[in-house]
Design a protein around this nucleic acid. Structure first.
Lengths: 207, 207
DNA sequence: TCTTCAATACCATTTTCGTGGTAATAAATT
DNA sequence: AATTTATTACCACGAAAATGGTATTGAAGA
């Protein structure tokens, strides 16, 4: 089994020591080093470049998410596992958007923790069932009552609007007059309570 | 342990029989019925309303994703586990967007299959490591070379464009002349190789 | 030092969009 | 039978956006 190199970023000394013990005592895992602040990690992680980083979210000044955001674009090969005490909804999505690859709770049992690190290393995205469901749910297009109120034709035209087509282009696609497209759009805006294209498209994408 | 009620939608008779056997022979799971077409399932599933549906993606005329799309909005409490032979990228996201809750491969071992069904029932979103990574990656804002080429000010203005603000509103926010905003936008379009707002915003959101 | 780039600002022109009115037809609903 | 809704179409006006040119300033780089 290949050795997985690991770094830890954690500002609570007791928790850090416990994590270090788990990694060091386990075959197949090698602790390269630890950091107690995001600032130190930004400097040190690119030098040590481990396979996996266990990143605490709530650090001192700069939090773990900011830290990932700073490092990940420059070193996409480094895998980040976010560690927190609670499953905070917003933090999860923020972390994933920042480039985190996994998300586990600190209370996770040592064996599970090691398993998750390996899963991450092997191309997975370890996270609890509850988090996975939230992530999957985020994919569901939230079809609001407003969107539902659109007629078939209007919904069709909104799709074209979302692609950035001009009215004349939409008209050509649908074989109707540009003026008719214009009128449909007018009604779409009324139903969605917006007054320009981008706002309508944002509603279409559930934002 | 509570009984989990299950229905299967699968048009291959051999595979269907195998799945039925697995469910029927296992404690804690109860097979309510099976369907061999999406059309039949749309009629029958709401009547049987199982906890979990094993849904084949490649059915005859109407595929499994269309089927989920038809039923899920009316019965969000029914959980859908998509089953396919291969991990087809586009299908995964299409299925999740349609309202699927889990995504596993048909070759999955019976024990794992049952475990996944229970995980689904208990609020999880079972899927393979590879799929989970793809789903998580989809959250990462894909910052293209084009987006990176924008200056700070331009990126800032693109954010406002994405919200649907008028030039004059953006100008007011930034305390600069509307004409200056206009010029920034002109450069943004050049760098992103687009010629209207919606296309620029789509690049911003990685579409 | 010279050059390039980012940010600012102003101008002119054309195209597209947003607003709102009228109206015919067919389909669905009351 | 009467009414509403969806789809189509045309018109007119003003607002906003898109194209492209000029120009100044300051900062960063060659």
């Amino acid at each position: 089994m290949e050795q997985i190199t690991v770094c830890i970023v954690e500002d609570n000394y007791d928790i850090l020591q416990a994590l270090e013990q788990i990694i060091m005592m386990s075959d197949g895992y090698k602790l390269l080093g630890s950091f107690t602040s995001a600032e130190d990690a930004i400097v040190g992680l690119p030098i040590l470049h481990p396979n996996v980083v266990l990143m605490d979210i709530n650090l001192g000044k700069m939090n773990g998410i900011e830290c990932v955001k700073a490092i990940k674009p420059l070193h996409p090969e480094i895998l980040f596992m976010m560690c927190t005490v609670y499953e905070e909804d917003e933090k999860i999505f923020e972390a994933l958007a920042a480039g985190a690859n996994g998300y586990i709770l600190k209370k996770t049992a040592p064996a599970k923790m090691l398993e998750a690190i390996r899963e991450l290393y092997e191309g997975g995205a370890p996270m609890s069932s509850q988090i996975a469901r939230k992530v999957v749910n985020a994919f569901q297009k939230p079809h609001s009552a407003q969107i539902d109120s659109l007629s078939n034709r209007e919904a069709e035209i909104l799709e074209y609007l979302a692609k950035g087509l001009l009215y004349k282009e939409i008209a050509a696609h649908l074989n109707i007059a540009q003026e008719t497209v214009r009128k449909h759009v007018y009604h779409i805006y009324e139903k969605l309570h917006v007054n320009n294209r981008v706002e309508a498209v944002n509603k279409y994408f559930g934002r």
